[in-house]
Nucleic acid binder design. Structure first.
Length: 463
RNA sequence: GGCGUCGUACCCAAGUGGCUUAAGGGACCGGUUUGCAAAACCGUUAUUCGCCGGUUCGAAUCCGGCCGACGCCUCCA
């Protein structure tokens, strides 16, 4: 089965064919580094990571660019409030973002270009748009894109701009634009911008939001590339505007596949900074979430459906991830690491079909669990599995984990103090000093490790 | 007002015309195992898919209406 992806532009699943055979160019809208990213933001980043991992698994060479928005109203406002330079803020939150992403096991992008690093390219694009009548200047030094000049405007979001309800913002903005929906390519300098300013052919100022993604994507991936992702809230206006600018600039098609992930909800409402109902990675760590458990929650729903994240579901995701962990230990006990095999169980092919069907992760995970249950049954019943079967199972598990990263390998590293206690408990148990053994068990628990007494002796694992 | 998504068991969540008298996970209950415990494993749990009509030999799946939830319409992943 070929990979099919749901293209927002056409609103149907399409067979994925890259522009260049076996190579995929992928641009994903990254964070605005004015604060910590929340788990809702990370839902999208984890989805994009999953897409990339699947493409890699299918054998594609993926070039992944994720931009960092380091100049906009919010970053400027924060720097101003704290009375520090803009890059003091953006450097700090950029670093935090990378740390959080690493904790969530998101594979790094090939490059994280920053908006402030591409001002020249933005100016080049804006100048060209002005020269060709797609944009116009205003007396305050701003440059606007003229949406009437682009007949496909609104095609991605299916929005007819002339039909829209007028929000307060548009009403107050209207005086200085041809059409209220024209958007800023360049914002003329205002006092609030302070020293955040660049020179341009049309005066001092700073770039508008949308232009940065056109500049950075074209600079790094060319004027026409394969995949562009983001959250659904980026469909309009951000991606709509990107298309307008980019196509009018290059005269070429901009992006072949637009993919958008749905929102992460919390208490039935969109998680967002303005609603103050968000959780950061820091919050999750405080609540004792493992990265694997968080990933499970984020990937156990399809990326195009709204998903509720909740600490109440922690037990569910902890348990599910734990079972996979136990299963992987079981295979190791069966000597999986010493077997060399290039076979795969049949379940893998069903799993792959699910993934190829627009990344149907819930179905793919369900298939994996069904197979896992069958395998554990066989192993527990001591049916003699051939080494080929074990090898094939292991290969499948490795692939599954390459895609989902639900297994925490660090769990296998036991600290020395815990090891000491385990040895003491072994002795106590052999002397049948049950009271003392129980006491040691609770000491170990306090250190964050759990003991399983099995026929083969004690087994330790991270709580 | 325009555009769009969704409503499946106690909870999460697939399925979008017959392979399903509805996957998978969690929880619960029962069992195996165990010094105890935990874990693990085994088993049970929706004749039914928001409601009402219609199309069809056949619908959770298509159509219409209604109810409910949510999102976008220039801060937003």
């Amino acid at each position: 089965m070929e990979l099919k992806l749901y293209n927002t532009y056409k609103r149907v699943k399409e067979v994925f064919t890259p522009l260049v055979n076996s190579k995929v160019s992928m641009y994903t809208c990254g964070p605005t580094v004015y604060d910590f990213a929340h788990i809702g933001n990370f839902r999208t980043f984890v989805f994009e990571d999953l897409l990339k991992r699947w493409l890699l698994h299918l054998g594609y060479d993926v070039v992944h660019i994720m931009n960092i928005t380091d100049v906009d109203d919010k970053t400027i406002a924060k720097a101003r409030n704290l009375e520090v330079a803009l890059n003091t803020i953006t450097d700090y939150y950029y670093k935090c973002f990378l740390q959080d992403a690493r904790w969530l096991k998101i594979l790094p992008a090939n490059k994280y270009p920053r908006a402030t690093g591409s001002i020249d390219k933005m100016i080049e694009i804006i100048q060209s748009l002005l020269n060709n009548g797609f944009a116009y200047r205003e007396p305050d030094g701003s440059v606007y894109f003229r949406i009437k000049s682009f007949s496909d405007y609104g095609k991605l979001s299916k929005i007819n701009v002339l039909n829209q309800k007028k929000t307060k913002r548009i009403e107050t903005d209207e005086y200085d634009k041809d059409t209220p929906n024209d958007f800023a390519l360049w914002k003329g300098w205002k006092e609030d911008d302070g020293d955040v300013v660049w020179n341009s052919p049309w005066g001092k100022g700073r770039p508008g939001w949308h232009i940065e993604c056109s500049a950075m994507s074209m600079e790094n991936l060319g004027e026409h590339f394969d995949i562009h992702c983001g959250g659904v809230d980026n469909i309009f206006p951000h991606h709509e505007n990107e298309i307008a600018q980019s196509v009018c600039f290059s005269g070429e098609k901009f992006v072949n596949y637009w993919l958008h992930s749905e929102f992460l909800m919390i208490d039935d409402e969109k998680m967002s900074k303005t609603s103050l109902n968000y959780l950061t990675v820091k919050d999750l760590k405080k609540k004792n979430f493992s990265a694997e458990s968080v990933r499970y929650q984020l990937l156990s729903g399809h990326y195009r459906t709204k998903l509720s994240f909740s600490t109440k579901k922690k037990q569910q995701s902890d348990k599910a991830v734990h079972r996979i962990y136990e299963f992987h230990l079981m295979l190791i006990n069966k000597g999986a690491l010493d077997i060399k095999s290039d076979k795969l169980p049949n379940s893998y092919y069903i799993f792959a079909d699910c993934m190829n069907d627009d990344l149907n992760t819930p179905k793919a995970i369900a298939e994996f669990f069904t197979w896992m249950k069958l395998m554990t049954k066989k192993i527990n019943q001591n049916k003699s599995l051939t080494s080929d079967e074990i090898g094939a199972a292991w290969n499948y598990l490795v692939i599954f984990n390459d895609i989902f990263s639900f297994i925490n390998q660090n769990k296998n590293i036991i600290p020395a103090n815990v090891m000491d206690l385990i040895r003491k408990r072994d002795i106590a148990r052999s002397k049948r000093e049950w009271g003392y053994a129980d006491e040691i068990r609770s000491q170990i628990k306090e250190l964050g490790w759990l003991i399983d007494d099995t026929p083969d002796g004690q087994k330790v694992k991270k709580a």
